[in-house]
């Protein structure tokens, strides 16, 4: 069982919300990963939908590139929609 691959688990807590990364676990196949995720991450009623994906299938950005990728956005506050007057009827924006 030591050669079981690692899986990343995403849980959706409510209908209408999106799946959020919950953690990772080991499992031999996708079916087992779903079952294990149910037992490890939803035992306190945390969710109503589970996604699993093999950790090796996730492509991540390189931390070394952090400045290059993200620094430029920090000074562009005008990209946040905070300069508009919102009508009262719009609750969530």
């Amino acid at each position: 069982m030591k050669d079981w691959p690692l899986w990343e688990v995403f849980i959706r807590s409510k209908n209408g919300l999106h799946h959020k990364h919950a953690g990772s676990l080991h499992a031999a196949d996708a079916q087992m990963a779903i079952e294990n995720a149910r037992d490890v991450y939803t035992r306190r009623n945390e969710g109503n939908s589970i996604w699993v994906v093999k950790s090796t299938d996730i492509v991540a950005s390189d931390p070394e590139d952090g400045d290059m990728l993200f620094e430029a956005a920090k000074s562009k506050i005008y990209r946040h929609p905070t300069f508009y007057q919102l009508p009262d009827e719009v609750n969530n924006m």
Binding site: L25, H26, D39, V40
Partner: peptide, 12 residues
């Protein structure tokens, strides 16, 4: 149990 995940599953 043989694995942490099985441990939790059987206890559940």
């Amino acid at each position: 149990a043989p694995e942490l995940e099985i441990d939790l599953a059987l206890s559940n």
